[in-house]
Design a protein around this nucleic acid. Structure first.
Length: 247
DNA sequence: CGGCGGGCAATG
DNA sequence: CATTGCCCGCCG
């Protein structure tokens, strides 16, 4: 490999610094939440709200992953979700460098970059590209990501939304072990590796909610969903403050 | 058993 | 960066 070539690559890969960072509320994109009300989480100075075309993220600078990712699906959005899959993962410039994951963190880590809002849900080319933000990723066991999670959780949710009468609000996120003693991070940035992943599905028309709850492990297979109240109990997050779903 | 959807890494 | 080849699991 030539020195000159490396130099050219380094120029191409350089990124400009963001001039302003993300805000702390979702006033710019309330449409992704049932009754326009985002989940209630414990305040944290490193939490930042990010709005995208087809989803919204509350991002944690401590874990360098999402706290949750919210979407609104319905029959029309799923029928539109036929874009060609993008492949370009990127660090999100709206986050301070010290708070965000990088491509280097995931490289050769042994963990996959697992989408929270799935690429397969995205209704436009731009939304598809945005879904590859590392703010929308968590370190996920590779076989789980492409296996049970993709098939029994993501595809099933899409299929459900495609048959629903109205809007289906979906919230996906990681769950970490409370202990900080063990190093659970990957890469120079120490992106934390979730112990569990969840996906909450709320059918507004039927006022019903349930949640998938998977151990982040290659051995995980599909399983029966848990109730909304059980998810709230396990995470400590009131995901649907604007709704009173029947479990 | 082929297609599909989820990824990975090496190369110039 | 784009291109290319590859692995894996699940479904029909």
């Amino acid at each position: 490999m030539h020195f000159l070539f490396r130099f050219v690559l380094s120029v191409l890969f350089s990124t400009t610094a963001a001039t302003s960072f993300a805000t702390t509320d979702f006033s710019a994109c309330p449409q992704f939440f049932a009754k326009s009300q985002p989940p209630k989480v414990a305040p944290n100075p490193t939490n930042r709200a990010l709005c995208y075309d087809a989803f919204a993220i509350l991002h944690s600078g401590e874990s360098k992953t999402a706290v949750f990712v919210a979407q609104k699906l319905n029959r029309a959005s799923v029928e539109d979700a036929d874009e060609k899959r993008a492949t370009k993962f990127f660090a999100d410039a709206r986050l301070p460098e010290a708070e965000r994951a990088t491509l280097e963190d995931y490289k050769h880590s042994g963990w996959s970059r697992g989408h929270m809002a799935p690429a397969g849900d995205m209704p436009t080319v731009q939304a598809m590209a945005q879904s590859f933000s590392l703010a929308n990723m968590v370190p996920q066991a590779a076989k789980h990501n492409g296996g049970a999670w993709a098939k029994t959780v993501e595809q099933a949710t899409r299929k459900y939304a495609s048959r629903a009468r109205g809007d289906v609000f979906v919230i996906t996120g990681p769950v970490y072990e409370p202990s900080f003693t063990a190093s659970q991070g990957i890469g120079p940035g120490q992106v934390r590796v979730p112990k569990y992943l969840f996906k909450l599905v709320y059918d507004e028309d039927r006022n019903r909610a349930w949640a998938h709850w998977h151990l982040n492990d290659d051995s995980t297979r599909g399983s029966r969903p848990i109730s909304y109240s059980e998810l709230v109990k396990r995470t400590g997050i009131t995901f649907l403050p604007g709704a009173r779903p029947n479990d």
